[in-house]
């Protein structure tokens, strides 16, 4: 028993020393940055939103900013022809480990390749079941769907640098969040790349919260569905009666 504990302590010590030596050898430092605003409000007039990321990277490095949401399994239907004529949803395919948001802002493809990021890297992280399906074709369609919704994108030339003296250069980047953004927490990452190597890394949390009328409507509709249905009809009846009085008995479209 004592021997077992001793072995575990030894392994932990070796691991910790190895971690320290790799970190210092790779020379990856903390990349400071801030997000403005840190909380995105999905309110009544929300139609997508812009968030500014500002920070500093070593003078010779380039910045890459990326935002990802939580990962989940997502089921899709493949389109197929019914009776050889009409297109309809057919077989189910499940994509595993799918981030609900995947936005990258960079200067060049080379920078994101050195981070093992981008759509090709994402393809390796996502598995598809049943495995008999053609991965390449399905992933291409998956990307079309996600990019159309504005949930996935790689934006090049998005980083702007400012002239400043000293060993670090300030940068800023405008991140456009899509109208289909789901409330929740998102990770905002910053990496500084120098000659294909990562020299600094940073991470912050961006929150998206439903507020006001959308929050009220969504919470009523999903948590008190019957009450919401009754309220929706009562409001419509009252609105109809008011319209009837205002326009003195319109016949009403049906």
């Amino acid at each position: 028993m004592k021997r077992g504990i001793g072995l575990k302590v030894l392994v932990l010590c070796v691991g910790f020393v190895s971690f320290l030596s790799i970190s210092s050898a790779s020379g990856v430092e903390e990349a400071p940055f801030r997000i403005d605003p840190p909380v995105v409000i999905i309110g009544t007039t929300y139609h997508g939103s812009a968030v500014t990321v500002r920070g500093e990277v070593p003078r010779r490095a380039k910045a890459v900013v990326w935002i990802t949401g939580h990962r989940q399994d997502t089921a899709f239907k493949k389109k197929g022809k019914a009776l050889g004529l009409l297109w309809m949803n057919m077989d189910t395919v499940v994509f595993h480990n799918v981030p609900n948001l995947y936005l990258i802002f960079t200067d060049s493809d080379a920078d994101i390749a050195s981070l093992s990021m981008g759509f090709e890297a994402l393809k390796k992280e996502i598995s598809i079941t049943p495995e008999t399906e053609d991965r390449d074709v399905l992933f291409k369609e998956f990307l079309k769907l996600k990019t159309k919704e504005g949930l996935y994108s790689v934006t090049k030339g998005a980083i702007r640098y400012e002239q400043a003296p000293g060993p670090r250069k300030p940068f800023w980047c405008t991140v456009t969040l899509p109208a289909k953004l789901v409330p929740g927490k998102y990770e905002v990452h910053l990496a500084a790349i120098n000659s294909g190597a990562v020299v600094a890394l940073g991470k912050q949390i961006l929150k998206a919260e439903e507020k006001g009328l959308p929050n009220l409507v969504a919470s009523l509709a999903y948590r008190h569905a019957t009450l919401y249905g009754i309220l929706a009809t009562v409001i419509a009846i009252i609105a109809g009666l008011i319209m009837g009085v205002v326009f003195k008995g319109g016949k009403g479209g049906h």
């Binding site: 109809g240 009666l241 008995g249 016949k251």
Partner: peptide, 10 residues
Amino acid sequence: VGASTSGTLA
């Protein structure tokens, strides 16, 4: 529901 309310009343 709203549209047919005023119509029914009339």
